[in-house]
Every structure is written in structure tokens, then in C-alpha cells.
Design a binder for these strands. Sequence first.
RNA 1: UGGGAGAUCGUUCAAUGGUAGGACAGCAGACUCUGACUCUGCUUAUCGGGGUUCGAGUCCCUGUCUCCCAGCCA
Length: 566
Amino acid sequence: MPTDGLNETTATSETAPSNFIRDIIIRDIQNGKNDGRVHTRFPPEPNGYLHIGHAKSICLNFGLAKDFGGKCNLRFDDTNPSKEETEYVDSIIKDVRWLGFDWEDRIFYASDYFEQLFQWAVQLIKQGQAYVCDLTADQVRETRGTTTEPGIESPYRNRSVEENLDLFHRMRAGEFPDGSRTLRSKIDMASPNFNMRDPVMYRILRAEHHRTGNDWLIYPMYDYAHGECDSIEGITHSICTLEFEDHRPLYDWYVKSLGIHQPQQIEFDRLNITNTMLSKRKLLLLVQKGFVSGWDDPRMPTLSGIRRRGYTPEAIRNFCGSIGVSKSNGVIELALLEHHIREDLNKRARRVMAVIDPIKVVIDNYPEGQTEEHIAPNHPDAPEMGERAVPFSKVLYIERDDFREVPPPKYPRLYPGQEVRLRYAYFVKCVGVEKDENGEVTVVHCTYDPASRGGDSPDGRKVKSTIHWVSAEHALNFEARLYENLLLEDAPQSEDLATQLNPNSLVVKANAKIEPSAKGSAPNTHFQFERVGYFNVDLDSTDEKLVCNRTVQLRDAWAKIEKKAK
RNA sequence: UGGGAGAUCGUUCAAUGGUAGGACAGCAGACUCUGACUCUGCUUAUCGGGGUUCGAGUCCCUGUCUCCCAGCCA
């Protein structure tokens, strides 16, 4: 049986459309900049799990490198030990690989460069471009100025090079308490760009680092570290999101002051998707507060979450390739992501019949105790995927929604007096119902036409619809987990997450039925439950109990018709 | 009200001074043993006002709107 979990690593063959970053690279190559090299990097901070927004950046960086015959590094931006953990490093490695990208031996960490970064800071001190400041965090903030007023220069700004060197080395040696001093760049307290108002380069922080342990008591800030890390690795195009536009002058200031290789920072728009939370901070909150079962809850937009949900790397790559890259911050419709997962799963998912919300059907004229098998293809358009036998007997289950005692106008499915086709089996006609004391239909009685075996009547008569079914005696009981958006359609703009969450984001159908061929399916096997949706086998599934996640529903024209009727 | 960035179909990305195009969504139809898939057709856009030009989404001026920035986070 084909399982495709972590083995789906074939690269996308999409022809990439033009975008402004490609234009820049093409121009750079033409001008012989960087000797025509293209070298990018994907630089996550290991402080959480990767989500679909990161997938855009991953596909962009690795994709650009591939398309231009260059390289792309994986680098962990681990300069803040108080937030970072090995668990996150491991998950990021797994997720990038799962998405189908390869960094060969180029996996790096900002922490690999701590000593070099320290030496460069010393160089900047010697050049008179950095100083040790004794102001507290509050004082730094108070003296930073406002949008209309310049900041106030620190009283420690003009310390001698010798004193700065001495103090900075003593910061490293642990002579001062956390937060008592910082190393700052001496730039311009009057700059209209706050990032240039003597930004902090190093802070004193006694926290165990997931890689360097307690070797360091001072840690470089992102702004100080990032350009140099890029420079060390020979990065040519340092691609990041729009909010770093204001940081670019500082990025350039450091590499220029140091006289080292200068990568070009290019900013693009972060991915936003309707009704989808793509903030690491908020996702962490969802996990911590128990609103979801974990980072890999199938409702999460994390790569581990959507992987568990049944999304494939191909679908995600195709999606990322189709959304484009620009500098305007837009919001992609969730429907586009769903389109790509349907498109991919339609090609690969084995068809199977499963009934999510069963209602019993008795074929009155079918012999008691008799069983027969009907042959069904595993994929309507892919004969090479084979076929399987589906057992049929007197008592069946069909979808509750496929029967109406009183049909609405134009209802094509089963109702008293109406004949439909049981897929791959027989024509059946509803001849009556049984009800419980509440008037609820409990059993639907039908008769079948033995001549229609296989699903077609020799007299050429047509039916309006074909419905799916399972044999009650042979079907496997299973648990279907149906997902909707985690966020409410009209989520209030509030910091209180609870008020924004959809109470129906997970509906468990513990009494669902599936044809026996699904027995023993491995986790992450993709199925199309015909006429219902794409599902995959969940991690929680065991030999005794099959558990399936609804990845995405099939497009449903009838639902639209019904909605309009209301 | 300082600085930075952006504005093209409902959404999103193209069009690099020369026929405004694709994808998704929507609508209509064909096909169908999945109201799925597939196929066909259709609707809909250059933020406003000036200017340059034979010709402007693209260049210039001006206005409007949106997003980002005052962490010892990244």
C-alpha cells in the first residue's frame, strides 16, 4: 500500500513566474555581481514550529537557488537563548526536509559565529563605532526620542576606546549583572530611523543556550548578527520579510563598517491567509493554553499540523509557487490552498467508500445471509492503481444526508419511491422507512434490481444519482475527525484568543463506517472517501481502531444549490 | 503630525512606454456509475486629479488610502 509521509521529496517542476526578486538576481548575474553566484539562506529562529508562512520563504529561498544554479543554506538564527530550544531545531530540520528541500552539508547556526561576532564587535569599538553603555533598558527607551524629536545621546557614548574594550571584555567575563550594560553602535541619535539611534549590539544575559550552554553571558542582537552571518556564509541575496525594510540601513552599516562581503537584503511580503493565524506568538499560546492538542494538531497551520491533516509537500510547494512574491501585503484566500491540496490529492488518493454519518438500509428482496463482492477501481483515471472487491449484503449503511423522507425540490438522491444507484453495485428503490418514537428515521427499506448488478440496468434506464454505501456486516467502524477553521469567520479583533476560536473546529464522528479494504492502513495514507472528501490516516490510528482526518472536503455543487435555496 | 514601503478584476500575481493577461473564487453549460475530476463559455480591474508622449498601469507633479517602525525579540 502506498504511504507517502516523509518520503515525498521530489522537487517541484513549476516554471516560476516573473517577480521582482528574480529580476534583481537576473540583473546581478548580468552585471557579474558576486561573480555571478547566487547564494540564499533560510534563517529561522528555533523558537517555535514552522508554519505555512515559512513554507513561502523556504520555497522562495531554495527555489531561487535551484533556478539560478546556486545554493541555499539552512541557518538557525539562535541569538536569543531565552526563547530557543533543541526541540524546535529538530522540528525545523524535519519540516524543511519534508517539504522537499536539501541544504546538503550547509546547516549553520548563528551561534557558530559567536566568537567571530565578538571579535568584530571589538573591531568596531577600536574604530570608535561602538561603546559600552550603562543605561538601563528603561533609560535607553526614554532617551530614544520620538518620531518627531531626536533621541538624547548616552552619557557613556564618548568613553575611550580603552575603557570600552576593558568594559566589553568584562561583560563577557561575567563581571556585571544581567541588563546592567550593553554594547551599542555609535551611529546617530537624531536619525529619523529608530534603528540607527545607537542600537544595542550585545546584551548581558545569563541563560543556557541550547548549543553553547553557558559559554556565553553576552549575546548579539539580531540586527548586529544577521548581516555578518550572511556575510560569513557568502550569501548574495538575503531575503526577508517587509518589516525589516527599516533595518536594511543598519544591516548595511555593519558590513560596511567591518569591510566584509556585503549581501543584498531584499524584502518581500509575508504570507497571510484568510481565517488563518500565522503568528508564532499566538500559535504558541494556542498550544500552551491547550486550545489545540499540540503543534501538530491538524487544525494548526504549522507544517507538522497540516502534514498530519493530510496536506502533501507537493501541494504546499505548488501553492507557494502560485501565490507570487511582491512588496504589497495582501491576504491569500484559503480557497487557493484548498485548491492545491485537492488538485494533488485528486491525482494520488486511493478511492474508497466510507460513510461518515450512517443510516441503515435494508434491501428487502435480497436473500438473508447472502454476501457478494463488487469490483471497484481504486482510482477512476488511473487503472494502474488497481482495484479491490467491496462486499455487499442485505443490510447496508448509507450517508444520512443521502436520504430524505421528504425531499426538497430537485433532490436527486434517495427518498420514498425514488431509485438510485449504489456505486458499483445495484439500482435500489426506497419502499419505506422505520422510525423511532421521536419520528426519526432509523431504517430505510429498499428493493434492488438484480438485473442491474455492477451498476447498470440492461433496459437502459437511468437514475438521477449514485450514492456510496458499505455493507453493515463487513464494514469497519472508524473514527472520522472533521475539521473546520480554527478561527471564527468573523473573529473579533481581540487579544483574547478564546473569543476568536470556532467551537466546531473539530467534530469527531466516532461511529463512521468504511469498507474493509481500508483495514490496517498505515498512518498518513491518503484516501478520497468518494463523494465526501479527502482524508488521511491519523497518527492515533491503531490496528484495532482506524482514525482518519478530513484533509479537505470535495467541492460540493449541491451544497451551493442548497445554500442558495435558503 | 518623523521615517520606510505599497496601491491593477472579489482575491492574488503578471504586463519592464506599444492589444491590461493568468490563477483562484463566482456564474452558465457539457460530460459523468463521485453534483468530484475534466472540458467550454462568461462577468469583473489600472486609487483620485493634473501633466509629458503619437501612445501611460508603467514616466513627472499632486492628493488620498493602507501597512511597518520608538525590544537589552527575531
